[in-house]
């Protein structure tokens, strides 16, 4: 099962990379910069997914006090920090050439930065607590709290007037030509698979470390 999942994820990632860098045409307005879309958006979606997993597993841990939920919650919090950090970085590398600025004080950018900081805080609380049990409990509480930011991040571009453009794919329709949709879909799938594999491996590592 494990080698299969890892192999499938690696294959998906390579196909995604190929589609993103070779197959996808340049955009009529942004040119080659559009290729950053295929790493920025999947990273953001993976961050949402990791945050959701962290929130759910943490809530279950607080309820059931089963260590296995804590392992998953910790993996989710780490990956939420990782992927939201990646989203911020790729967003900046996209914003500088296209918008002309690395950063803007608009709602989407600030709420994403808040998301990143909250998960960093969540991980620090766990590591710095006096005893491990307390650390698990406290970081679970922070993980539940931090998830409140996810819908705010996602809908900030709809609710508020931001520099960041609105969603290209929503219930109102798809504003993405099919040439861009396929690489985006494959890359999103690949990142979610990567998230799943990393979650499973991180949780397994945590259980091994506790057993020891």
């Amino acid at each position: 099962m494990r080698p299969f999942a890892v192999g499938a994820t690696a294959a998906l990632l390579s196909v995604g990379l190929f589609l993103a860098l070779w197959v996808s045409p340049p955009d009529s307005y942004q040119g080659e910069y559009v290729r950053i879309l295929y790493v920025h958006v999947p990273a953001a979606l993976a961050a949402y997914g990791a945050a959701a997993v962290a929130c759910g597993a943490s809530a279950l841990y607080l309820w059931r006090r089963d260590l296995r939920w804590d392992f998953v919650g910790r993996a989710g919090a780490e990956l939420a920090a990782l992927f939201s950090g990646l989203t911020l970085l790729t967003g900046m590398l996209w914003g500088k050439p296209v918008w002309g600025v690395w950063w803007a004080w608009d709602a989407r950018l600030v709420t994403t930065a808040v998301l990143f900081l909250l998960y960093v805080g969540c991980l620090l609380v766990r590591d710095l607590a006096d005893d491990p049990e307390r650390g698990r409990r406290l970081s679970a509480a922070v993980a539940v709290l931090a998830f409140l930011d996810v819908p705010v991040v996602h809908y900030s571009v709809v609710w508020f007037r931001t520099l960041h453009q609105g969603p290209s794919i929503s219930l109102q329709g798809v504003k993405l030509a099919p040439e861009f949709l396929l690489p985006l879909a494959v890359n999103t799938l690949a990142y979610l698979a990567l998230l799943g594999v990393l979650l499973a491996e991180r949780a397994r590592l945590a259980s091994l470390e506790v057993e020891r």
Partner: peptide, 21 residues
């Protein structure tokens, strides 16, 4: 939350400021 956390007063702003923006 931070009572029994080492460096709690240092973590305080990290959690307090984003939450109260």
């Amino acid at each position: 939350l931070l009572t029994h956390v080492r460096a709690g007063p240092l973590l305080m702003p990290l959690l307090f400021l984003p939450a109260t923006v």
